[in-house]
Simulated assay, not measured.
Amino acid sequence: MHKSEMTLNINGEDRTIYARYADTLLYVLRAELGLTGAKPGCLNGDCGACTIDIDGDSMKSCLMLAVEAVDKKVTTVEGLKNAPIQSQFIEKFAFQCGYCTPGFIMNCNSLIQKYPNADDTIIKDWLESNICRCTGYQEIKEAITSVLSSPHKNL
């Protein structure tokens, strides 16, 4: 099992790791870097529990090899640092068991950044990429809407 040295920019910090070319980014984040916010769910890109941000786009880290993240900016839920969507998830009770919450927060944060004037159709489309079996999506939608309507949404 040959491992290669790679430098990844994770949450604004360059981190040197040793990984196989076949290692997923999800595996490296959790096992090599101790960042456990991205969760293993389906491991085939359906559930969204492992969603992170790559260069401003939400990405399911189970579908990306770690080597593909070299020279990219990777942000995990641990790196958000008090993004407005985090406080609104708490305010609107937009979580149940919490397992899928980090993936939803990352996806919602990307939505807010890309579509600051998102309407219900865009929000619904984005929410379809993540699965939660514990709750309806109404509270999550309310958290997004609250951030989008806030005059301080980009703080």
Rank of each mutant, 00 (worst) to 15 (best):
G48R: 05
I131E: 03
A49N: 03
F93H: 15
D71W: 06
S150Q: 07
K39Q: 14
C97D: 14
I85C: 08
I140V: 11
Q138A: 10
S58E: 12
Q86Y: 01
P151R: 07
H152E: 12
E91H: 12
K92E: 15
M106Y: 08
K73C: 03
I140Q: 00
Q96C: 07
E68V: 06
W126S: 08
G79H: 02
Y115W: 09
V70N: 09
Q88F: 11
P40C: 10
G41M: 08
K153M: 04
G103T: 00
D125N: 12
T101I: 01
P40K: 15
N154D: 15
K124A: 14
V77G: 03
P116L: 03
C134L: 00
C108Y: 11
I122D: 04
I52G: 00
L148Y: 00
I122P: 01
K73F: 09
T101W: 03
D119K: 08
G98C: 01
D57I: 00
D71L: 04
I131Q: 07
K81I: 06
Q138H: 10
Q86S: 08
P102S: 07
I122V: 14
K92R: 15
G103M: 02
K92H: 15
D125P: 06
A69F: 02
T75M: 12
E128W: 06
C132Y: 01
N154C: 07
V77N: 08
C108N: 14
L127R: 06
G48N: 06
I131A: 04
K114S: 13
C108Q: 11
I112F: 01
K72T: 13
M59I: 15
I54N: 00
Q138W: 08
E139I: 05
N107V: 12
E68A: 11
Q88I: 06
S110A: 13
A49V: 01
P40H: 13
K92G: 10
A83D: 11
S87W: 09
T121P: 05
L80W: 02
N117V: 00
A118P: 03
N109W: 10
L148A: 06
T121V: 13
E91V: 10
G98F: 02
G37T: 03
M59T: 15
K141T: 14
S129Q: 11
I112R: 00
K124C: 01
P40L: 12
T135S: 13
C97P: 15
F93G: 14
D119M: 10
G45D: 05
C132N: 01
S150V: 09
E91C: 07
S87Q: 15
Y115V: 01
N154K: 14
G56K: 06
S110R: 11
I52T: 01
M106T: 09
I52A: 00
Q86K: 05
M106Q: 13
K124E: 14
M59S: 14
Q113V: 11
S61C: 07
